[in-house]
Amino acid sequence: MAYDKFQILTSTAYPLPTENVDTDQIIPARFLKATERIDFDVNFFRDWRYHQDGTPKPEFPLNKEIYAGSKILVGGRNFGSGSSREHAAWSVYDFGLRCVISSAFADIFKNNCLNVGVLPVQVSAAFADTLFAAIMADPKTEITVDLPNQKVTLVATGASESFVINKYKKDNMLNGFDDIDYLKNIENEITAFAKTTPF
């Protein structure tokens, strides 16, 4: 499945400074029985976003109108820990987020995000604190995530920090490819190689 290309994103951000957010909180296990990829946006952080009667919890950042429409989530340290469920990354994308910024990610969650079109950006703890402070002071604070130059910038002050990403995954994000799309894109090269290489 192809995804929207990721080049340079400037957006406001949802702040979620809680540490050790695990994948069962991101998408509770009871929603993993689905055979189709539907309602993952609705059930994203389901138990944190809603009361048992289904009404929204107004204090939860993802429910606050002041952050509505943000394409970035700034999360606490060790974001995406726990089980390896790919559904957690699906729910991030389906909710409308294209980037999650944190000072530390669980490796499997990070890779799952890269596979489904979500850019996980790891920054220093100090820079994450700077982002949180700016968002709390002004919910309309914008952050620019520049994938070609691998840099995150706080628009209001110009404070920035570089981030690291695997070159293969970077190229796929820039082109809107998943692994299958990448292989299809180099199909002619694969065919040519197969014709000249004995097996």
Rank of each mutant, 00 (worst) to 15 (best):
E142Q: 15
I143M: 02
T144F: 13
V145R: 06
D146I: 12
D146K: 06
D146W: 08
L147I: 11
N149F: 07
Q150C: 08
K151P: 03
V152P: 05
V152R: 13
V152Q: 01
T153P: 00
V155F: 10
V155S: 09
A156G: 08
T157H: 11
G158S: 03
G158I: 06
G158E: 02
S162V: 04
S162I: 03
F163N: 00
F163A: 01
V164Y: 08
I165H: 04
I165C: 02
I165E: 00
I165N: 02
K167N: 06
K167D: 09
Y168L: 12
K169T: 09
K169D: 11
K169H: 11
K170M: 14
K170F: 06
D171K: 09
N172S: 04
M173K: 12
G176S: 09
D178W: 15
D179H: 15
I180A: 13
D181A: 15
L183P: 10
K184S: 09
K184Y: 14
N185S: 13
N185G: 04
N185T: 08
E187F: 14
N188Q: 14
E189V: 14
I190L: 14
T191R: 14
T191V: 03
A192H: 13
A192I: 09
A192W: 10
F193Q: 08
A194S: 11
K195S: 01
